[in-house]
Amino acid sequence: MGRRLNIPFLLLLLAAAVAAGIALGPVHLSPAELFSPRNRAILNMRVLRVLTAVLAGGGLAVSGVALQAILRNPLAEPYLLGTSSGAGLAAVIALVCGAARLYLPLFAFGGAVASIVIVYLLACGAGRMQEKSLILSGVIVSVAFSAVIVFLVSLSGEKVLHEMTWWLWGSLQVYDPKLIVLVSLPVIIGIAVIYFFSQDLNALSIGEEESMHLGINADRIKKFLILVSAFITAGLVCVCGIIGFVGLIVPHMMRLLAGPDHRRLIPLTCIAAAIFMVVCDIVSRTLFPPLEIPAGVITAIIGAPVFIILLKSKRRAL
């Protein structure tokens, strides 16, 4: 049955990954050197980075789990609601207007929230929300915003283009600890809320009317959880940019390994995605030092083959 994976085991793996993430880096340092006061800055930077990876992995994957269950669509992923392009557009506007780098995350968060609101209102047009119209409005808003992003970038030259690349490929380097604390709020609260509704997600995943016949107020809970997962993504996208693949693939991997019961699936996915993200980040930093490969590239390069192997070995449909 392959449903033996357990949380303590994964937590141990996560601890090992975090330790490795702090120990390894483009600069080789022994543990004694790393903890000497001289290298304080490097240590701080690595700790922040690993923490960001844990948050980003866990948050994106749990957001993906929830959306896949609510929309009953295996292609659902955290950026489905236009959060990434909304945040991106706001960031470009901030850069073009010459706003200080400091305000960028704030702008981005505003943009992400604005796009969620637009997509949501478009989808809810007439009474009960339809899954299809939500997915479609998400795609439409994303395409429109992306076009404006490209338009603005092409008008404003090299500097903005350079500033924007980290965004489009995702980056886990955050320089300000306060920012991490701020972002961790929506992410951690969001994950907890989604976990609280895990039984509802089980019922919703078999069908909207079916869940109503089990006493679940499907329409209200669906809308609420979609907003919660969107806020997790909005919080993350404004500091990390777009990190693809984690939120789409890790939920599927864990469903293959641990089954679709969300009461198990959500904590397992959260921890597994955090491990996955930390490992991907280690690779991205240490493969070609001092160059750094964008996070989104590594998640896809490592994630795709792992996923294919799993899918083949389980011989089970999603």
Partner: peptide, 10 residues
């Protein structure tokens, strides 16, 4: 219901 449930493999 008349329709058999879809969704994940429970």
């Amino acid at each position: 219901s008349r329709d058999l449930p879809g969704g994940f493999s429970f």
